[in-house]
């Protein structure tokens, strides 16, 4: 039985996770190496409990699958996992920020890729609406920039 750690989310929820799974986070790994006692709870006041659950699930799977599951199986699981946790755009953004702060490289890349997929083939208006982005460029500026790359929107011969 591997050693477990207790993590406390920003909304006060306490979750336990295997230490080797937690060590997937470069930030927590540094922290544990420097000071933390595994008997104590680790407060993560910048992590929402829902994100923490997802992160633990991801890390646990990857620790368990390492050396046992094939690349294909891991990719398939990653795909399903990302599809599930990024359905909500707001939660997707929050999770990407959290993952960045916790420095979980694999998950971070998957989440970034998810954003890129969502951005693909969207118009500026759709992107602004979807991601709550202010429309702060003057029209003249937009036209000016657009004219430099409008060849991209033309149908090729």
């Amino acid at each position: 039985m591997s050693e477990t750690l207790t993590l406390v989310s920003a909304d006060g929820k306490t979750l336990t996770a295997p230490k080797d799974a937690i060590m997937r986070s470069a930030m927590l790994k540094n922290l544990l190496e420097v000071a933390a006692n595994s008997d104590e709870q680790i407060p993560l006041d910048f992590v929402h409990s829902e994100d923490l659950e997802n992160i633990i699930e991801y890390c646990k799977y990857h620790v368990e699958a390492e050396g046992k599951a094939s690349e294909g199986d891991i990719s398939k699981w990653d795909g399903e996992f990302i599809n599930r946790v990024t359905q909500d755009d707001q939660k997707h953004l929050r999770l990407i920020q959290t993952t960045d702060q916790l420095q979980i490289e694999g998950l971070f890349k998957l989440l970034v890729q998810g954003i890129v997929r969502k951005l693909h083939n969207k118009t500026p208006e759709q992107i602004r609406e979807k991601w709550n982005i202010p429309d702060d460029l003057p029209k003249e500026k937009k036209d000016e920039i657009f004219n430099t790359t409008n060849w991209l929107y033309k149908k090729s011969q």
Binding site: I96, Q97, D100, F108, K109, V112, Q113, I115, V116, L119, H120, N121, K122, T123, P124, I127, R128, I133, P134, D135, D136, L137, K142, I145, F146, T149, L152, Y153
Partner: peptide, 22 residues
């Protein structure tokens, strides 16, 4: 994080993003 995202975008997406926000 934005840099990580933009590095993975294709040309068309980059062009679109450029006129989305300052």
């Amino acid at each position: 994080v934005l840099a990580e995202i933009f590095e993975r975008c294709d040309l068309k997406t980059l062009a679109t993003l450029r006129i989305t926000n300052s």
